[in-house]
């Protein structure tokens, strides 16, 4: 029970901190002081009290988009094990629900974007739908590999149980998986080199361009939901890339928090040292990551 409470508290409170750490890392690389670590919390709080501007083209769906996105992020966070602890919801096939919940969020984000009738937002929606089509198979390749390695059909046993013991024997396929999942982590969360959360040129954006017309509390929900998605997918990635367990249940939470912060630093470093890819390159990289994951599958099937 305590651990479920810690799980829920971490999921609700920690995500914006990751954005703060990424921002600080990027500022360090750029030689700036940067915004405080807690800036994303201030931003979300500020947005919650702001007024809203609505386009006269929009319908109820435009308002529903951010609500669904955030509810999905919260529900999905209950399915993912954190650190060495199983998730509150854990059952055979939960990974399918996990992946498809994000599909629901994506559908509503794209629909809300199309609801404005703006060509820019249509463009963003089209890109989001296109690139996630290519990212989805990678995630499922990874899930098959993990299911086969761990002999389990539930995220909690798949990820917390045996990964540490599997590393020595199955290192090649796990390295391939970690690589492809890192690509997916960056792409799904709209980070450089796939998308730039800071860009201000509508023509080149993916996620930010879809939410151009959202304002006030709704935009706050979107920011918060996006941070939570980064947190949840980051936790998934860490299980494979950073499978160290302390042994003590409470120490494990500490290890997990530190690992998450390190991950945020790594993402910040990637964002600082890499340029954004040209739009036509993105599908190629995504397909490449799928093939990496397929290699991992071949290695475990042989």
């Amino acid at each position: 029970m305590t651990h479920i409470l810690i799980h829920i508290l971490l999921v609700l409170l920690m995500p914006p901190l990751l954005l703060g750490v990424i921002g600080k890392t990027k500022a360090f690389f750029a030689g700036r002081v940067g915004a405080p670590y807690l800036q994303p919390y201030y931003d979300i709080w500020k947005l919650m009290r702001k007024g809203s501007v609505f386009s006269e083209t929009t319908t109820w769906l435009f308002r529903a988009g951010p609500i669904v996105t955030l509810s999905v992020a919260v529900t999905a966070s209950l399915l993912i094990p954190l650190g060495n602890h199983s998730a509150p919801f854990s059952f055979a096939g939960d990974m399918i629900l996990f992946a498809y919940l994000f599909g629901l969020a994506r559908f509503f984000t794209v629909a809300a974007a199309l609801d404005t009738g703006s060509s820019f937002e249509g463009m963003g929606g089209a890109r989001e739908a296109t690139f996630s089509c290519l990212a989805e198979p990678t995630l499922f390749f990874a899930l098959v590999v993990l299911a086969r390695l761990s002999g389990s059909l539930s995220l909690s046993t798949m990820l917390t149980g045996s990964i540490t013991t599997l590393w020595p024997d199955s290192a090649p396929s796990l390295i391939l998986l970690a690589g492809s999942l890192f690509i997916i982590l960056l792409a799904e969360n709209c980070r450089v080199p796939f998308d730039d959360p800071n860009t201000h040129l509508e023509l080149t954006m993916i996620h930010e361009v879809m939410v151009l017309d959202h304002s006030g509390p709704a935009f706050g929900y979107i920011l918060y939901g996006a941070a939570m998605k980064l947190f949840v997918l980051g936790a998934f990635f860490l299980h494979i890339a950073f499978p160290f367990k302390a042994g003590d249940p409470f120490l494990d939470w500490g290890v997990f928090i530190i690992a998450m912060l390190l991950l945020a630093v790594v993402i910040g470093i990637v964002e600082s040292i890499m340029a954004r890819l040209r739009m036509v390159r993105i599908p190629q990289i995504l397909v490449a990551s799928t093939i990496l994951a397929a290699f991992a599958l071949v290695l475990v099937l042989r």
Partner: peptide
Amino acid sequence: VALILYVCYSRQLKSTSRQTTTTW
């Protein structure tokens, strides 16, 4: 969760200012 957020959002919309304009 969606219902809770919906209630929150409706309250926030009522308590804050609201404008209607063309799409950006």
